[in-house]
Simulated assay, not measured.
Amino acid sequence: MPKTPLVAVVDDDEAIREALCDLLMVTGLACSTFDSAPAFLSGDAPGHVDCLITDVRMPGMSGLDLLERMRAGGSDLPVIMLTSVLDPSARARALDLGAQAWLTKPVADDALLDELKAAIGAEDWPDEPGH
């Protein structure tokens, strides 16, 4: 039986973390949530997840700082950035660092799932329910 892809969600807003995790689990993905970038980095999560969804603006370490630190450490983990603020320079920086996508909140479920499918790979994507 194939391994269920695990997606980490890093966001300082509990409601957003819960909503994203609910969406992922309904889709057939596993989800792990973190309330800050340091919480994500402090465990062994970076080496055990298949994709990271992170908020850009968080207290302390931002999502951009998290992406930068991961890339500096040699990680090629796919990262999807979420933000509620239009910031072309931050978007350019994230994409230069290899972010899979830059999505504006509120993000449409289909748009997020399409980016996740591209990041994880269609071959590892869970079957549609009922198939």
Results as ranks from 00 to 15, higher is better:
80 I>K: 01
25 M>T: 15
49 V>Q: 08
74 G>M: 08
70 M>C: 09
56 V>F: 00
55 D>I: 00
27 T>V: 12
65 D>R: 01
28 G>V: 11
20 L>I: 15
63 G>R: 02
20 L>T: 12
31 C>V: 11
43 G>Q: 14
76 D>A: 14
41 L>T: 10
77 L>V: 13
22 D>V: 06
20 L>C: 03
60 G>Q: 03
28 G>R: 10
44 D>G: 15
81 M>Y: 06
61 M>C: 09
41 L>V: 10
31 C>E: 09
48 H>T: 15
46 P>Q: 01
73 G>Y: 00
62 S>T: 15
28 G>C: 11
46 P>N: 05
46 P>Y: 01
32 S>G: 13
31 C>N: 10
38 P>N: 10
60 G>S: 06
42 S>V: 05
27 T>G: 03
34 F>I: 04
43 G>F: 11
63 G>C: 06
70 M>G: 08
60 G>I: 00
21 C>N: 10
59 P>G: 02
68 E>Y: 02
48 H>C: 11
61 M>A: 07
80 I>F: 02
20 L>R: 04
41 L>D: 06
40 F>K: 09
69 R>C: 09
63 G>L: 00
32 S>K: 12
65 D>F: 01
44 D>S: 15
76 D>I: 08
34 F>P: 08
63 G>S: 00
48 H>K: 14
60 G>C: 05
73 G>S: 12
26 V>G: 10
32 S>M: 12
83 T>V: 02
40 F>S: 07
